[in-house]
């Protein structure tokens, strides 16, 4: 298969970027999207040009490192997968593919398609944990947890922190990410203890870091590679408001 790639190139955070057009040919349909990028990069190196910088690591859809806005979709046109899990058989032979970095004020571009998602770490540092010390904990079975709650917690905990939600949201809102963590811990008795504090602290940090406001479009859940539901946003709203009304 052959493809025309329009890729955003940007030297560093301060430089202006622009699209460059590249062609790749003889790509097997079984090649993954990122392997196709590897092939392009190897070609560029042989031409003495700098390869396209993009984030990736596990290539199994779990580390959350890969990003890329492909033909208008975060993680490409497939549903419920990360960029590293897309295969070229899902594209048309000869198709033009436009590849852009995440675009959000809170995710500045570092180089080409690589952005800084440190803001997500900062939000979690504000409260995305249970304050227990190593070794001062009860037996794992001391508190039974209804299977339904554990499952729901796991649904939210599947978030890989890739940034697709904020990158997709027309408002640049990180609500789905924040909600996933708050909701996951809120569904467990262990996390319940400091639930109110967590919701307030994480929302305040999210606002401080310049993420936008959620307007319930649901675009985040449509593009989330882990299909995390906006029901978790509802739970975050509930957690936050009830915490505030208790103040």
């Amino acid at each position: 298969m052959n493809f025309t790639l329009k890729i955003w190139r940007q030297k560093d955070a301060k430089s202006h970027g622009a699209f460059e057009t590249y062609k790749v040919s003889d790509i097997s349909p079984d090649t993954s999207f990122l392997e196709m990028m590897d092939i392009l990069n190897n070609n560029l190196i042989h031409e003495g040009k700098e390869p396209v910088a993009f984030d990736h690591d596990c290539r199994e859809g779990i580390c959350g490192m890969c990003s890329l806005h492909i033909n208008g979709h975060a993680h490409g046109p497939e549903q419920a997968v990360t960029t590293c899990q897309i295969y070229m058989r899902k594209f048309r032979d000869g198709q033009t593919i436009v590849i852009e970095p995440w675009r959000s004020a809170a995710f500045p571009v570092i180089k080409d398609l690589v952005v800084d998602r440190g803001a997500y770490d900062k939000i979690l540092q504000a409260g995305g944990f249970v304050s227990v010390r190593t070794n001062s904990v009860p037996d794992g079975n001391a508190i039974p947890i209804p299977k339904k709650d554990a499952d729901e917690s796991m649904d939210a905990a599947a978030c890989v922190g890739c940034g697709a939600c904020a990158a997709t949201c027309k408002n640049g809102s990180a609500m789905l990410f924040v909600a996933a963590r708050v909701s996951s811990l809120a569904k467990l008795p262990q996390g319940r203890v400091e639930g109110a504090r967590r919701a307030k602290a994480m929302v305040a940090k999210m606002d401080e870091l310049g993420f936008g406001n959620c307007t319930n479009t649901g675009a985040c859940q449509a593009e989330c590679p882990k299909s995390i539901s906006i029901a978790h946003i509802a739970r975050l709203n509930r957690e936050f408001l009830s915490a505030k009304f208790e103040d």
Binding site: K6, S104, K170, N171, S173, G210, G212, N213, G218, A219
Partner: peptide, 20 residues
């Protein structure tokens, strides 16, 4: 606020996401 949060550089290609 939201316009600012979106950043100065906008996407060249945007779509209507499924179910939105």
């Amino acid at each position: 606020d939201n316009y600012r949060a979106r950043g100065k550089q906008r996407y060249a290609v945007t779509v209507k996401e499924k179910g939105v």
